[in-house]
Amino acid sequence: MGFKLLSKLLVYLTASIMAIASPLAFSVDSSGEYPTVSEIPVGEVRLYQIADGVWSHIATQSFDGAVYPSNGLIVRDGDELLLIDTAWGAKNTAALLAEIEKQIGLPVTRAVSTHFHDDRVGGVDVLRAAGVATYASPSTRRLAEVEGNEIPTHSLEGLSSSGDAVRFGPVELFYPGAAHSTDNLIVYVPSASVLYGGCAIYELSRTSAGNVADADLAEWPTSIERIQQHYPEAQFVIPGHGLPGGLDLLKHTTNVVKAHTNRSVVE
């Protein structure tokens, strides 16, 4: 069995187990497998329904001669939608809004960016022009300005110390501490036991640490421990890039980060 097929099978099995364990909360999309990078042309966006009122959005972007996937989250909030992270750029984010209108038909009224990198804030200006209120932590807003990236308009308070959590509509926002970046936030959907790890969490097929220019490698494993301790009931975990899975993604990420750190020390 090929690795790609095995990865998709694991996603399907995880979703099936969740649907059985929580039949009222989960209505997993039966329309197909989780979209992969090879299936999404740059400039297009796919939506994948995880649970009743919960979707991931998947886009792709060219970077350094390669094409990478990027995940975000959409959560229903009454007759409105909360968006977590842009679709990595203005063109993708405009396509995301169009796809949401086509498939869901509810307005996106608020959006949260989970850290300051372009795959999370690139497209904020498109959201703002569409009347979406954009939010991020003060740290993310400051770092985005320093980096020359787009800056969300509103500040999220109460997320300055490791372990801080605040309720934001249908989700809980959690600051686990520094990891992929010093400002990275985690998003949890309690009604569906869905954990969105953003770039602080890796997919299972990833074996290298990737972009760690703004990471705190020493603190990252401790931050992941905080996530595990705060959300032990999480059933569906979405990484910032690639295929979702279960809580095993947290341990896998820790292993990859520690291996990278150990290699760096040896070198």
Rank of each mutant, 00 (worst) to 15 (best):
E101K: 03
A165V: 08
G123K: 01
M1A: 10
A200F: 01
A95N: 15
G240W: 01
E145A: 14
E157H: 11
H115G: 03
I100Q: 02
T93K: 00
R167F: 14
V266P: 12
Q61I: 07
S181L: 00
A178K: 09
S31A: 13
A144N: 13
L217D: 15
E80R: 09
S205A: 06
T60K: 12
G43W: 08
V266W: 14
I238T: 13
S160Y: 10
S223F: 05
L5E: 07
Y68K: 14
N184P: 01
P232H: 05
T222F: 09
Q235V: 05
N184C: 00
A98H: 14
E219W: 12
E101G: 05
G198Y: 15
A90Q: 06
F168T: 05
V166Q: 13
L96A: 11
L204I: 13
I186W: 12
V54M: 14
V42D: 11
A59R: 12
A234R: 03
F3E: 09
R263L: 08
K91F: 05
S30T: 15
T254V: 10
V237C: 06
D125E: 10
H57Y: 06
D85Q: 00
G246Y: 08
Q229F: 15
A218S: 10
L6D: 13
V265A: 06
T36H: 06
T36E: 10
L81Y: 04
I100M: 10
D183N: 02
K102E: 10
S137W: 10
P190Q: 14
G78P: 06
G148H: 03
L204C: 15
S30C: 12
G78S: 09
S191W: 05
A178L: 10
S155E: 05
L73T: 04
N262V: 06
I151C: 03
T134A: 06
T14F: 02
G148N: 03
D216G: 08
L247I: 04
V37W: 09
V54E: 02
R76N: 04
G245N: 11
I186R: 00
I50W: 13
I186C: 12
V108R: 01
T261M: 04
S56K: 09
R263T: 12
V108P: 14
H180G: 00
A66E: 08
Q235D: 05
L247K: 02
D214W: 09
S7Q: 15
V37K: 07
